[in-house]
């Protein structure tokens, strides 16, 4: 759905995006992670043809961008760096205007499309109110509604839960999962690890303009082959497993080069009390931290 190669953007001397090769596949919920200022928004803007790349190629829905923007963008819904609307108009009037702008939106079904989008984001009740009177969360929903107007097959969302309360965040998550279930590919950029971890199937990490990591979330969180043991008798366990303990902190040991079942047998045989024993899995945070502090490595 989104393929870029060698995507680079230079602002004068500053290299904002450096040789990024994104690969978002159909059916993904792709989490695009990166700190503020890492080049996330510039990348998103390049995908949508707002910012022109210094070099590199972009393909959206199998077509080159921005050359075929007129054919591609009608099938893409986008929310870029916060929502925007005309304050002196109502939410419904705003959606009607944005629907009328640009070709390919038949006039007759406009009202139905607008109502449908408003319903989807839960703004049906306040659609007649002027946007000036909307809360930040309501504006965010209106922005989502605008992105959903044309039932896009690809959603590009930049920080979609910004400004929402926990209730709203969970509603948006449900909405995105629902859309995903009906076949929409979602590209979601965020700086919130937890959001991405809960929602996404695939993750890309941007650090100072470079894509340092891109993989399936499941792969990243695969067992590491090491085993984590928690025991009040940590010192005894350490002595027992001499040479195999990689880390010891309090009652927690990380043990390598031994099967969990075998490990368990040995510890129990030695009469040690075990609170917890299981394969080590890295959290996304650890993965990201490891990727961004080490020298950049892009996994295939």
């Amino acid at each position: 759905m989104i393929v870029t190669s060698g995507l680079t953007k230079r602002y004068g001397q500053v290299l904002a995006v450096d040789d990024v090769g994104l690969d978002v596949r159909e059916g993904d919920i792709y989490g695009f992670l990166g700190a503020n200022g890492s080049g996330k928004t510039t990348t998103v803007r390049m995908l949508l043809g707002l910012v022109l790349a210094t070099s590199g190629d972009i393909e959206l829905l199998g077509r080159p961008m921005p050359r075929q923007a007129a054919a591609v963008l009608p099938r893409v819904g986008a929310l870029v760096e916060g929502p925007a609307a005309y304050g002196h108009l109502s939410g419904r009037a705003n959606l009607t205007l944005i629907d009328a702008a640009g070709a390919g939106a038949p006039r007759r079904s406009r009202r139905a499309r607008v109502d449908d989008a408003l319903e989807q984001v839960g703004l049906g009740q306040v659609a007649g109110r002027k946007v000036r009177a909307y809360s930040l969360g309501m504006r965010q929903r209106l922005g989502l509604a605008a992105a959903l107007l044309r039932r896009p097959s690809l959603l590009v969302l930049d920080e979609p839960t910004n400004g929402l309360d926990p209730q709203g965040i969970s509603e948006v998550r449900e909405l995105l999962l629902g859309l995903h279930g009906r076949g929409t590919t979602v590209f979601l950029s965020s700086h919130l690890l937890a959001e991405v971890e809960q929602l996404c199937t695939r993750v890309g990490v941007l650090d100072r303009g470079r894509l340092v990591l891109q993989d399936q979330l499941a792969t990243l969180q695969q067992p590491t082959g090491r085993t984590v043991v928690r025991t009040p008798d940590a010192a005894a366990a350490h002595a027992l497993l001499d040479g195999r303990v990689e880390r010891l902190s309090g009652d927690r040991l990380v043990v390598a080069r031994i099967e969990p079942a075998e490990l368990n047998r040995r510890l129990v045989a030695a009469g040690l009390r075990i609170t917890e024993l299981g394969p080590e899995r890295r959290t996304l945070e650890q993965v990201v931290l490891a990727a961004t502090t080490d020298s950049p490595v892009v996994s295939p």
Partner: peptide, 14 residues
């Protein structure tokens, strides 16, 4: 300034 320009352009409006 109001931010609506980017939404018009990705609508897309040439």
């Amino acid at each position: 300034q109001s931010g609506t320009l980017r939404y018009l352009l990705v609508r897309p409006v040439g």
